[in-house]
Design a protein around this nucleic acid. Structure first.
Length: 334
DNA sequence: GATACGTGGAT
DNA sequence: TATCCAAGTAT
């Protein structure tokens, strides 16, 4: 795997250049948080923007949390952004990043995977790094029958057996690159795989059958209403509660979310609200949302929130669901 | 152990 | 269009 990595590693902005010294722990940490359940393609431009704006953990810790949340907009899983800020401050308070897996594990937003990845990649510690790519490769390599996630202890034990004592960070990244480009979920390219000669899943003739996974639950359909209050070229935005869905993010005001369209229930301020004919659909991790769009021209009513220049709404740092709704409303004639 | 938590690309 | 899936963590 290390030989394969030396000739096939992807060039990624958070990786040290080939032949250079160990990568910057700040960049490794930031990239690992961003990459949690998120594709490389989505992370790359966000990572570049973050390190350009905040080149060090000290700079990130000193930033207002609202700036960080807005910069994170569009990446999803916004608890990561809140934890990122808390973690940066914790690291500054400590003086530097912990260098051990246990020390890293204690930081906000750093779980078992991320602690192992940072320890191995940034600090050269031997650590067993198991992400979704590694789990898939290892489940095929050993033809692990126990469905995931219940079979994760078995996957972890098998990964431990094949993790080398040196360059375990490169080994982890090699396994992830292999999972991403060769040992893919649907149609693995076994003819290009350096492990095919020792892969039990390949020998059995159905590597794509691993890992076995528990069935997923259907997503319920829910409904809600977005309120677009416009006054003198400005639109009312609010800050969502600090925890829960889209927690802490700047947002358009919404009414309750329910099993049937809630209409004009719970507007942010009294006005002559008008429902537009179109709706906006959005899919979250665990439910589908169909949004009605309520609009009103208001005359300077007091309301909790901030009035944001409508033409600059793209710079407000809105989560995608609200950006979609804003686009639909601005394109509509009303 | 189960559930909440986003989004966009691939198939 | 529908489904799957991603460098998971917190509770």
């Amino acid at each position: 795997m290390l030989d394969w990595y030396d000739s096939h590693a992807r060039e990624l902005p958070w990786r040290a250049a080939p032949g250079s010294n160990a990568p910057d722990p700040y960049r490794v940490w930031l990239s690992e948080i961003m990459l949690q359940q998120t594709t490389v393609a989505a992370v790359r431009p966000k990572f570049e923007a973050f390190v350009a704006r905040w080149p060090s953990v000290e700079a990130l810790a000193a930033a207002p949390e609202a700036d960080l949340m807005a910069a994170w907009a569009g990446l999803g899983y916004y608890a990561r952004a809140r934890n990122l800020h808390a973690c940066a401050r914790a690291v500054v308070a400590l003086g530097d990043f912990p260098t051990t897996e246990d020390g890293l594990r204690a930081l906000p937003g750093v779980g078992a995977y991320t602690a192992a990845a940072i320890a191995a990649i940034a600090f050269g510690e031997r650590a067993v790094v198991v992400d979704a790519n590694v789990a898939r490769v290892v489940a095929r390599l050993f033809a692990i029958e126990r469905p995931l996630p219940g079979g994760m202890p078995e996957v972890r034990a098998a990964t431990d057996q094949i993790t080398p004592d040196t360059r375990s960070g490169d080994f982890a990244q090699a396994m992830m690159d292999l999972g991403s480009s060769v040992c893919t979920p649907r149609s693995p390219r076994c003819l290009a795989c350096p492990l095919s000669s020792v892969c039990e899943g390949y020998r059995l003739g159905h590597p794509e059958g691993f890992p076995i996974k528990a069935a997923k639950l259907a997503k319920p359909q829910r409904h809600g209403t977005i309120f677009w209050a416009q006054h003198d070229g400005k639109v009312l935005l609010v800050r969502r509660p600090p925890r829960g869905l889209l927690g802490g993010m700047r947002a358009l005001p919404t009414g309750p979310w329910a099993d049937t369209p809630p209409g004009l229930a719970d507007p942010p301020l009294p006005a002559d609200w008008q429902l537009l004919p179109q709706t906006v659909a959005h899919v979250f991790t665990h439910f589908r949302l169909k949004l009605s769009l309520a609009v009103a021209r208001v005359d300077g009513h007091a309301a909790d929130g901030e009035w944001w220049d409508e033409t600059g709404i793209d710079s407000a740092g809105l989560p995608t669901v609200f950006a979609k709704a804003a686009d639909a409303i601005r394109r509509a004639r009303w």
